[in-house]
Amino acid sequence: MAVSNPAEYSPKRNTSFVDWLNRHIKLIFILPSLIFVLAMMVFPIGYTVWLSFNEWNGSARQSPQGVGLSNYTNLLTADPRFWDSVLRTFLFSFGAVVAELLLGLGIALLLQGKFFGQNFIKTLILLPMVATPVAIGMAWLLMFEPTIGLLNALLRDIGIAPQPWLGSEQQALWSLVMVDVWQWTPMMALILLAGLTVLPEEPYEAARVDGASPRQRFFYLTLPLLMPTIVVATLLRSIDALKTFDIIYTMTRGGPGYATETINTYGYVQSFEYFKLGQASSLLVIFFAMVLGISLLFIQVRRRWGVQA
């Protein structure tokens, strides 16, 4: 490329500087993103880790006090709210992602063929994904309202007893899963649809020649061929679902009681309601490690399936 030797253009001026630039051109090109990553990611994570070994409430008069590992031992051994919230985080994410995967796969298969108004339907299905989670939370909060909400009005019309939804410890978490599924199934469907459209035609032709039933074609061709896409979609969605905060905060703030408190909302409570910045940091560090572990696991899984594809 022409840029490879800028020194040629001004051989007399600033030769040493240009030479230096020339020699470090790779470094200079990546420098902006390097600075960005350092400032916006590495530093906050490092600071969080450091803070997790301290206790501090943000005081201007008292700087953070080192407390060693006690934030971690507190959480892991003495705080039932922590373990409950971990369990709920995984229940929520698992429930949501499985439902989204199944529904998303169904929708993708339906949308795969050609039909009238296909693009219109596709756009329509994608709408929930475009909306802001907090706005969605507000809208669903109204629909879930047991006395004056839409859902119970519908239930009453078809003769089913009204449900307390978010007002019940048993139903609240699953009501939230419902909202998450409503919002994020479209993304699952979109990724899977993209995966379906690039599948090779030849195996299907061969299968048809051999007289394979649609069922067989689905289980022995589509599913295995689509597996890499499914794994990627599940990975992306799982990490996202684990981090869910907005809809929970908007709709239940972790209640009733503690029935929908996840690691994220608990971290928020620890930092912004209890002012225990060190404790909150240690919680986030543990959560970070968990998400990292899950991601690594998925990458392993993907490698395996990737070979097959």
Binding site: L126, T132, A135, G137, M138, L190, L193, Y249, T250
Partner: peptide, 30 residues
């Protein structure tokens, strides 16, 4: 499909401002 996704991204970005003001609404709910 790719075009559609791009469009959607644009839409999401455009909604960014609305998003911010909507975020404002939220916490007061509780």
């Amino acid at each position: 499909l790719a075009t559609l996704m791009l469009l959607l991204c644009g839409l999401v970005a455009a909604c960014g401002d609305t998003g911010a003001s909507t975020t404002n609404t939220a916490p007061t709910g509780g």
